[in-house]
Design a protein around this nucleic acid. Structure first.
Length: 1026
RNA sequence: GGGCCGGUAGCUCAGUUGGUUAGAGCGCACCCCUGAUAAGGGUGAGGUCGGAGGUUCAAAUCCUCCUCGGCCCA
């Protein structure tokens, strides 16, 4: 007692309401999140949500399947988080938004891994039964599906994880093959030969997506083709008539294509010159070269990158005749190795169309340019003069018009054509009746019966073997011996490689299965489409092809976010070639067709197809490889008449079918087709977006999606691409284990994912900081709402003070903005809006102003607090309910933690729907007024600052302000409350002085009605004592 | 090599049809508070808008070139 009286002031701390909550300031997400996940699993949150939303408007996000191979990387984390944000925000809006994740399980990379394991164990893959090999691939994929499934769930991705879709499920494989058979039945399938990307190492065709470009050093050579005749080119004819030889010079970086050369191409508008170039042995050659490329040829021959201008004609021809490329039409040349064969063979002449035989005496005459070694053609070691195919080399090579692709950017302006090994070559030769010869076999070696450098010859080798194509390798040596090699040197350039083996790939003609882009679709497919405003609806399309329908869907039906995705997909579909479906591999869905040995047509019998599908249903794709094909063919067909196709399907066809077996199959009854949204990285324009579109348009006449959302790539902190070789990758698992999945999710939601974006330690630190700010404000609300008694405190809108109504106005604005952001999938805007609102409107403004009220407007004689305090807590409660729901799709774990703190016995926040925010809370007049007051508040703060710095006053509560009050729509008391100052008086100039009032011992305000420091103000007195 | 996209404060982002002194949040510095306390409040410093030209009374914004980065294609 005596001690109390000796104390000057009474400690009122216990009479003041302070926020209290068990919600910790420090998150400890990494430790806490797994527990929350376990709880969701136990409570079957996803299933409960499905039941709760059953019957509501649907929103179907169809998951693009990641490849089941390896741990997830940051790109997966971004992609899945964005999908989760879409699904959860749509669900929050009250829609039924199921999410079935899937995996892409077939394909080369897995096959490659199994083969790698075989190699380590010294097993030969070819000796392992296919079914065993496929089983191992299946088990490998299965393992990674499980690993990734855990990792995705740890990220907080909500979905039907117990029943994902796998492209290797028997039901999926069945659907894939039946989709293929739809193409077959519709006549939208053909077998053709085309040069396609081929990997001699993996011995398979590669999809464009399986190819990457890297710099390599190749051998560049200039090769002279002797011109036999050029009937439309007087300049050449004149020289030939004089008995001189004229050579067309071609440049190539793939010397190995010379043995399969079949023609030469010129540009009709290119100017050519006949220049005299000394051969290596000193004789002069008349060479046809594009005028502007003479210098480049000389440089290559000199082995230098720059040649002085004057040097050009040193061995040239001052008045070299020149002519337009079009004059080369009808000209003929000899293959450089032709003489090597004809020297011991009777001339056989052209084989392709009765060309006039050429004078044998010319061919038999001694070669004017013997090789420097002087050995001559007799000594070329790798010639099989007796070969039936020797004739290939003695045929004349026609000059063809290649104006569409022959340029004067590099080379000689003349291009040698090997239809087996180039798209331009193939197309141009095909148009001129020259067909591929399939000389290079699957492993990159010329076939055994080839006349030059055949398999089995000691000098032969794979065409991607550097030694084989080197300047001193067999090809160059032989060409040199034949006097046809003008230069051979290293050449650095970008060259395609297999993404798996990193080995060089080549273009190679092989028989493959194709889906044609430009063949008219059957009517029943075209008419399935219901494209609004489409060309089809306008009755334009009688002969619409797959390309037409796909473009129509892109242009007229599908929504693209961002918009530029439309143009990108469009240009790709416009320009793409026919779709190559086949792969010569084992781990995939077979192209289940029988080809008639006589006609070459595939069997198109619905009854057989039905048996095939039934077999797949029972045993998956293995059913084809292990099948009794005669049984599948039935009594109407004899297996002996048919070739069983053993190719498998491109994995892009697999994933292109996911819409069929996920959305339409009924295996996931809450799904429907078409999907509302496909959401993938921008690389999928060429991949899944396109394969799905083509598959669906080819079978259903419409796109499988209503909207396509693309995100950019995640780069490192400096904006460079992440790669293992650069060592700048960032492992999402590490972020999750160090900072928590919510931090990674907040990052994904914060960046502008429509563009390429960055991640790094500093960026994650910034994200953590804004997370902490959000977390603390929620913590404050939880504390402020401790013991909130709605029955006694809840205040009707009309009874709320203006400040509270202004905040509700701001909430209504936020609410509308967030809804818009959800519909635009603009998650960056979404979290920024929440963050700004929490920081500016709440923490620094509303909560700060009302702290006094919250703490002190309550006491024994006013247990529920003043009306202002009731109003305040009513609004804080509304804010809490709204903000917790808003943030829930982003901070899935934290929102649950917040929610469970408030409602320990309640159900998950993720079952809640979008908060009830009354649009009637919008109040423009109030907003004007309070935004103005907010500015005034800032002005006052600026005015106080100097005094605070010189320590005249400390807390703003000590400041008395002079302020021109006339045009302010508030009372002085309200003004003081707003600015958290002692008091205000009217005046023309803003001024700040230290107040002379005493400080209330309870609420610490310095106001006139406090008799002395430490005594109670009248408000505190009445609250405590009545 | 070709096509497309992008480069705004340390970080993440806004900047409408060209129009005052280019904004926000976070971070940073300093100050206050010590009753949201490993929190809260305040004030302030940071940008020649990738670079160089050009159009215009006026350019972050339109045009050209260059540069850096990314995606796709060859």
């Amino acid at each position: 007692m005596s001690e109390q009286t000796s104390s000057e002031t009474v400690d009122y701390k216990d009479t003041v309401f302070l926020p209290k909550t068990d919600f910790p300031m420090r998150a400890g997400l990494a430790n806490k999140e797994p527990g929350i996940l376990a709880r969701w699993r136990d409570e079957k949150l996803y299933e409960t949500l499905r039941k709760r939303r059953a019957g509501k408007e649907k929103f179907i996000l169809h998951d693009g399947p990641p490849y089941a191979n390896g741990d997830i990387h940051i790109g997966h984390a971004l992609n899945k988080t964005l999908k989760d944000l879409v699904v959860r925000t749509q669900s929050l809006l009250g829609k039924d938004a199921p999410y079935v994740p899937g995996w892409d399980c077939h394909g080369l990379p897995i096959e490659w891994k199994i083969e790698e394991q075989y190699r380590k164990k010294k097993r030969n893959k070819d000796e392992v039964p296919a079914s065993e090999f496929r089983a191992e691939c299946r088990s490998y994929a299965d393992n990674w599906v499980n690993v990734q499934r855990e990792q995705f769930q740890r990220l907080g991705i909500m979905g039907e994880w117990d029943k994902p879709y796998l492209t290797m499920d028997y039901s999926a494989e069945t659907t894939i093959v039946s989709e293929l058979l739809k193409f077959a039945e519709n006549g939208q399938l053909y077998r053709g030969a085309k040069p396609i990307m081929w990997s001699p190492v993996e011995k398979t065709a590669l999809a464009e997506a399986e190819v990457e470009y890297e710099d390599v050093t190749s051998t560049q050579i200039d090769v002279a083709f002797e011109i036999i005749e050029a009937p439309n080119c007087p300049a050449i004819q004149e020289l030939i008539a004089k008995g001189e030889k004229v050579h067309a010079v071609i440049w190539t970086t793939t010397p190995w294509t010379i043995p399969v050369n079949q023609a030469l191409a010129f540009g009709a508008d290119i100017n050519y010159k006949i220049v005299r170039i000394s051969s290596l042995s000193g004789c002069a050659l008349n060479c046809v070269v594009a005028s502007e490329l003479v210098l480049g040829l000389q440089q290559r021959r000199a082995g230098i990158s720059e040649l002085p201008e004057g040097a050009v004609y040193e061995i040239g021809w001052p008045d070299a005749p020149s002519f337009k490329g079009s004059q080369l039409a009808g000209a003929m040349a000899k293959h450089p190795m032709a003489d090597a064969f004809s020297s011991s063979l009777p001339f056989r002449g052209g084989t392709e169309g009765g060309d006039e035989p050429h004078a044998p005496d010319q061919i038999d005459s001694p070669h004017p340019n013997p090789s420097p070694e002087g050995e001559g053609l007799e000594h070329i070691p790798s010639i099989n003069r007796d070969s039936e195919l020797a004739e290939f080399f003695t045929r004349p090579r026609p000059f063809l018009d290649g104006s569409s692709f022959v340029t004067t950017d590099a080379g000689t302006g003349l291009v040698h054509m090997a239809p087996d090994h180039g798209e331009d070559d193939f197309d141009l030769c095909k148009a001129n009746g020259l067909n591929p010869v399939f000389a290079v076999e699957a492993d990159g070696v010329y076939r055994a019966d080839w006349a030059w450098l055949p398999r089995g010859d000691a000098r032969s080798g794979s065409v991607i073997n550097k030694k084989f194509t080197a300047a001193n390798g067999p090809i160059c040596s032989d060409l040199r011996a034949a006097g046809a090699l003008l230069s051979a040197d290293d050449f650095k350039h970008s060259y395609p490689h297999s993404w798996r083996s990193k080995a060089k790939i080549i273009y190679r003609c092989t028989p493959q299965w194709f889906v044609p882009m430009d063949t008219p679709l059957p009517e029943h497919v075209r008419n399935d489409a219901e494209g609004v405003g489409s060309e089809r609806a306008q009755g334009k399309g009688v002969n619409l092809s797959l390309r037409d329908v796909a473009l129509d869907e892109i242009r007229n039906t599908v929504r693209f976010v961002p918009e530029r995705g439309k143009r990108r997909l469009e240009s790709m579909v416009e320009g793409r070639p026919d779709w190559v479906l086949s792969r010569q591999r084992a781990w995939g869905v077979p192209i289940a067709l029988y080809v008639n040995r006589k006609s070459g047509d595939y069997l198109n019998d619905p009854a057989v197809n039905a048996r095939i599908i039934a077999a797949f249903q029972a045993g998956g794709a293995d059913a084809w490889f292990d099948a009794d094909h005669q049984t599948l063919l039935g009594a109407d067909h004899d297996l002996a008449d048919y070739e069983v196709v053993n190719d498998i399907l491109d994995v892009w066809f697999d994933s292109g079918c996911t819409h069929s077996f996920v959305l339409e199959s009924g295996n996931w009854p809450d799904h429907q087709s078409p999907a509302d949204l496909y959401l993938e990285g921008s690389d999928q324009h060429r991949g899944w977006f396109q394969s799905s579109l083509l598959e669906s348009c080819g079978t259903r006449g419409r796109a499988p999606y209503k909207a396509v959302l693309t995100h950019g790539m995640t780069l490192d902190k400096t904006g460079r691409k992440m790669s293992k070789s650069l060592g700048n990758t960032l492992d999402p698992k590490k972020v999750i284990n160090a900072q928590g999945a919510d931090i990674l999710r907040l990052w994904a939601a914060s960046v502008d994912f429509t563009e390429d974006h960055r991640i790094g330690d500093e960026i994650l630190k910034t994200v953590s900081d804004s997370y902490r700010k959000l977390r603390n404000t929620f913590r404050y609300m939880l504390g402020a709402l401790a013991d909130y008694d709605a029955a006694n405190e809840a205040t009707a809108y009309d009874d709320l003070p203006e400040l509270e109504r202004y905040i509700l106005h701001r909430l209504a604005e936020l609410d509308a903005g967030l809804k818009q952001a959800v519909n635009d999938f603009a998650f960056g805007k979404y979290v920024r809006a929440i963050s700004d609102f929490v920081n500016d409107d709440l923490s620094a403004f509303f909560f700060d102003i009302r702290k006094d009220c919250l703490y002190c407007d309550v006491g024994p004689h006013m247990p529920h607090g003043t009306r202002t305090r009731c109003a305040y807590r009513t609004v804080v409660n509304i804010l809490f309910e709204a903000l917790t729901r808003y943030i829930a799709p982003v901070l899935v774990f934290t929102a649950e933690e917040i929610w469970m703190t408030r409602y320990p016995e309640g159900e998950s926040v993720h079952l809640q729907e979008w908060p009830d925010v009354d649009s009637g809370w919008h109040n423009a007049d109030l907003a004007d007024k309070w935004q103005k007051l907010s500015t005034v508040r800032q002005t006052v703060n600026e005015a106080i600052e100097p005094l605070r710095r010189e320590k005249t006053i400390r807390s703003s509560l000590e400041a008395d302000i002079v302020y021109p009050l006339a045009d302010l729509p508030v009372t002085p008391d309200e003004f003081a409350e707003l600015c958290i100052i002692a008091g205000v008086s009217d005046g023309t100039e803003i001024a700040v002085t230290k107040t002379t009032h005493h400080k209330c011992g309870r609420c610490w305000r310095l106001i006139p009605d406090v008799p002395e420091d430490g005594a109670l103000c009248s408000r505190c007195d009445s609250v405590l004592n009545g």
